[in-house]
């Protein structure tokens, strides 16, 4: 393993009711790397992401976080998860808590911070996503884009070593997608290590250090975004990109 490696998945398998969703995934991610996982629906991208922190338990395989396996029964998985937090497609903000309290809860419960310290940290995280004015708003009073930005603030307030995004903009209207991607870009440029399962090809192209294309439970192809998007080596990658890039707003036809 390289000195820079933060997480490594080895031969991850997962089946649901006899249907094999992941057929042996290997992936290593370095510190400060931004990896985008793309692929058609049902390719296993999200399941793979969820196996990384064992929110979904893999049937077979191993995940190493900072060189140590996180699979055994004597691993404190809660502690591990607090360093590799997740941002969900459906935001999953705690519905009964204000934006600020959403962020404070894990700081107090998991990090053991006092209320004052947690509150200062929460407000700081909210300002990073441009929502300090919404500190006392409940999730139901926020737009989808704002909720997702609070969810990102909740994640980064933990000062995690890795943030996993599970289709963070798929539930959003196009005009709200932009504000979330903007926050994510800033995060990436700030040196955050990120794994992003996404359908936003523009984001992958601009921000990713590496793009991973998954289909039918395997990694078909991975590499530099320029290479993947302009010169994909595999036929399935080509087909997929042709299909999705058709819908992307490109330059106007001459």
């Amino acid at each position: 393993m390289s000195q820079d490696e933060i997480i490594r998945a080895v031969n991850i398998h997962k089946s649901f009711k006899g249907h094999e969703v992941l057929k042996g995934i290997d992936l290593s991610i370095s510190r400060q790397e931004v990896v985008c996982i793309i692929g058609p629906s049902g390719s296993g991208k999200s399941t793979f992401l969820r196996c990384l922190n064992r929110i979904t338990e893999p049937d077979k395989g191993e995940v190493l976080f900072e060189g140590k396996s996180i699979m055994g029964p004597d691993v404190d998985i809660d502690e591990v998860r607090s360093h590799m937090v997740m941002v969900f497609q459906s935001y999953n903000l705690f519905l009964h808590l204000t934006a600020k309290k959403n962020i404070m809860l894990a700081l107090e419960q998991v990090r053991g911070m006092g209320q004052e310290e947690a509150e200062a940290r929460a407000l700081d995280a909210l300002s990073k996503v441009g929502l300090e004015a919404k500190a006392d708003a409940y999730p139901g009073q926020l737009s989808g884009g704002q909720q997702q930005r609070v969810a990102i603030a909740r994640a980064i307030a933990m000062e995690p070593k890795l943030v996993m995004f599970d289709e963070p903009t798929s539930a959003l209207d196009p005009e709200l997608t932009y504000e979330v991607l903007d926050v994510m870009k800033k995060l990436a440029y700030g040196g955050m290590t990120m794994v992003v399962v996404t359908h936003e090809m523009g984001f992958a192209k601009d921000v990713a250090d590496r793009v991973v294309f998954m289909d039918h439970g395997v990694i078909v192809e991975e590499g530099d975004p320029d290479k993947i998007f302009t010169d994909p080596q595999n036929e399935r990658t080509r087909q997929f990109l042709k299909r999705v890039l058709k819908d992307e707003p490109g330059p106007p036809p001459a």
Binding site: N53, I55, D78, E79, V80, R81, S82, H83, V85, M86, F88, S90, N92, L93, F94, L95, H96, L105, A106, Q109, V110, A151, R154, A155, M158
Partner: peptide
């Protein structure tokens, strides 16, 4: 909603903490 427990667990809360606070 199921996502509430998942969000709590994936930020490092124990099952008990998630139950009690979320």
């Amino acid at each position: 909603p199921k996502g509430q427990m998942e969000a709590a667990r994936s930020i490092g809360m124990t099952r008990m903490q998630a139950m009690r606070h979320v």
